[in-house]
């Protein structure tokens, strides 16, 4: 079986900083794959390279088609959508307008309405707040907007950058449930970047561990969860 998304030997430089030093990873259809690692390891950079926000060297393929040379705005059309770190919602647009921006590349009103309703069933809170400016939402609510906006693009592979950042434990659990739900119901493949390694491993099929720009370990999430060195470095005991 071919992976839906594959990175091969990806390098990213920020000026003199060599942030990614040959990262390779695969996401297969219907998988939740998490990417964990310490601060500054290069997780966000990996997702940015995937979305075309930073230039990179190496190969990125989506369904065996190479996309590394495509500009950012074309990659979303191939089924790659990202909920960025720090959320990046449009603060002066309402919740609903934010979601509609997610469907920018589509013009089929019917389906867009359905997708929006689907997001509202995932996050009923957003429905209550649909005409509130996104900039005035709480952090957790903004996270919901960012995820929903990415969903509106009907991704085949959803990229989530720290969806649990700064959220209360109860909401974190909710968000992970939703990720799992999307994966099972919509057969969506998900690449999840997380600081909360325990949660991430619990909910994913496979995982990659990253250290200073390189993948140092990979395997089944369940195996990694019981791996001693992982427990010491990332799970806090």
């Amino acid at each position: 079986m071919n992976p839906v998304l594959e990175l091969e030997d990806l390098h990213v430089h920020y000026g003199s900083i060599h942030a990614l030093k040959g990262v390779s990873l695969k996401v297969f259809a219907g998988e939740i794959v998490s990417l964990i690692g310490a601060n500054g390891a290069g997780k966000t950079t990996t997702l940015r390279a995937l979305s075309g926000i930073v230039p990179c060297r190496g190969r990125i393929s989506m369904n065996s088609k190479e996309i590394q040379t495509l500009p950012s705005h074309q990659r979303v059309r191939l089924g790659l959508a990202q909920s960025p770190e720090g959320r990046g919602v449009f603060p002066l647009m309402t919740v609903e307008e934010n979601l509609d921006m997610g469907a920018f590349i589509y013009s089929d009103k019917e389906q867009i309405n359905q997708d929006r309703d689907f997001c509202f069933t995932l996050f009923p809170r957003l429905k209550e707040r649909r005409s509130q400016l996104a900039g005035t939402l709480s952090g957790g609510e903004q996270q919901m907007v960012a995820i929903s906006r990415a969903l509106m693009a009907r991704p085949q592979v959803l990229l989530l950058d720290e969806p649990s950042l700064g959220l209360a434990p109860l909401i974190v659990a909710q968000i992970f449930e939703i990720v799992k739900h999307l994966n099972e119901l919509k057969k969506m493949s998900i690449l999840l970047v997380e600081q909360n390694a325990r949660m991430a491993l619990k909910f994913s099929h496979r995982a990659y561990v990253m250290e200073t720009g390189k993948i140092t370990l990979s395997g089944n999430a369940a195996d990694l969860l019981s791996d001693d060195s992982i427990r010491r470095s990332y799970l806090g005991h």
């Binding site: 979305s51 075309g52 926000i53 500009p71 950012s72 705005h73 074309q74 990659r75 979303v76 059309r77 959508a81 990202q82 960025p84 990046g88 919602v89 449009f90 603060p91 002066l92 647009m93 921006m101 997610g102 920018f104 590349i105 906006r149 693009a153």
Partner: peptide, 14 residues
């Protein structure tokens, strides 16, 4: 307006 508010996000929405 989306460019005004977050150009990178706008870009990655197509």
């Amino acid at each position: 307006m989306s460019i005004r508010e977050d150009e990178i996000a706008a870009d990655s929405l197509g």
